[in-house]
């Protein structure tokens, strides 16, 4: 698939600068908002107009593109600048389709993150925005895998970004995707109710097919659309078969409806394999798997599993191969295999 060289991440934990994953940041009113940095590398005139998703995406992306020129930019975002979209929509209705300023319209287009990254860094290479809900980032990973086969030696910026929007949160909550009762992220996995805690963030990576100076390798990837628990379990068993998995990184979200999928996948790995979780510090959102990949790279480099993430310690003395399973709303599933280099 590909090698990962550099990464940048904004999340509910300090991950952008001075990474601290040991001390768990508490949830805020049933949400896991991202800690946003000062964005010193985004031109101020542009920063003022940007919504959260745009800021987080451009901020993490530029951080990497300043270090290394890329041959193209691939971004996953399920909702783009949804807060700006709905702001513009409200203006349309409130002013009865009167004369509007285009700022919110242009800023909220889903491809604005990849587009602005291209514009600011003068990158005329491949530029794509994948928006396929819980498999948007996985499609980015597949797309870049093909690009690297087609253009050996190239280096690409890939990433995933989504924001919590006040109004979109309202709708997703009404649709039953979030916890109704007040709950802290420290007790997320003990919860037996439906719904998760919403999160947001951005994770970006510079990737190539060159192992030299790489920090990790995405060794395999599978995307699956189904609600069939048996099919997921069988496919995951197939995915990890004959592979020495040191750690299973589970996308468990605390939503009681999807627990059974995760339980079945846990049964597919050996008892020696450690099991860890992350949605209590990233929250649940469509492109959370980008943050899970970032977390995997961090684990491979640091070899320490933060206490609050551990579901089962297992008996491995080192982490060299991590399998990830993620389930979005029970119908979109992905498996990733991340290895040390």
């Amino acid at each position: 698939m590909f090698y990962i060289h550099q990464s940048s991440c904004i999340s509910h934990q300090p991950t952008f600068t001075g990474v601290d994953l040991q001390n768990l940041q508490p949830s805020v009113n049933n949400q896991l908002p991202a800690i946003e940095p000062k964005y010193i590398n985004i031109p101020l005139g542009q920063l003022r107009r940007m919504g959260r998703a745009l800021r987080m995406g451009v901020g993490t992306g530029i951080t990497l593109l300043e270090k290394h020129k890329a041959d193209g930019i691939l971004i996953a975002t399920s909702n783009g600048g949804i807060e700006d979209s709905i702001t513009f929509l409200n203006q349309i209705v409130d002013y009865n389709e009167g004369r509007l300023t285009p700022t919110h319209f242009v800023q909220s287009t889903f491809n604005a993150i990849a587009g602005l990254l291209g514009m600011i860094t003068h990158n005329t290479g491949y530029n794509a925005t994948h928006v396929h809900r819980g498999l948007a980032f996985e499609n980015v990973a597949l797309d870049v895998t093909m690009l690297l086969r087609e253009n050996p030696g190239h280096i690409y910026l890939i990433g995933g970004v989504d924001e919590i929007s006040v109004r979109n949160y309202r709708m997703e909550a009404m649709a039953g995707w979030y916890k109704k009762e007040p709950i802290s992220n420290t007790e997320l996995y003990a919860s037996e109710t439906e719904g998760a805690l919403p999160g947001e963030g951005a994770a970006m990576f510079l990737v190539s097919n060159n192992a030299e100076s790489a920090t990790a390798k995405l060794a395999d990837l599978k995307l699956l659309h189904t609600a069939d628990e048996n099919l997921v379990a069988n496919q995951f068993a197939e995915f990890v078969r004959d592979r020495e998995i040191d750690l299973l990184l589970s996308g468990e979200s605390g939503d009681s409806r999807f627990k059974r999928y995760y339980t079945r996948c846990e049964q597919a790995v050996s008892e020696n394999t450690a099991i860890a979780r992350y949605k209590h510090f990233t929250g649940e959102f469509q492109t959370a798997s980008a943050l899970a990949l970032w977390f995997s790279c961090w684990l491979l480099q640091n070899q320490t599993l933060p206490e609050h993430c551990i579901k089962r310690s297992g008996s491995k003395t080192a982490f060299n191969r991590i399998a990830l399973y993620n389930n979005y709303q029970g119908v979109q599933h992905s498996f990733m295999l991340v290895e040390s280099v």
Partner: peptide
Amino acid sequence: DLSSVTLYIQQRYGITGICNTFNT
């Protein structure tokens, strides 16, 4: 959202393979 279009057809036809939605 955008992928609702793709996912309705995916579910109606029982497509299991790679599905994706672009917005460029």
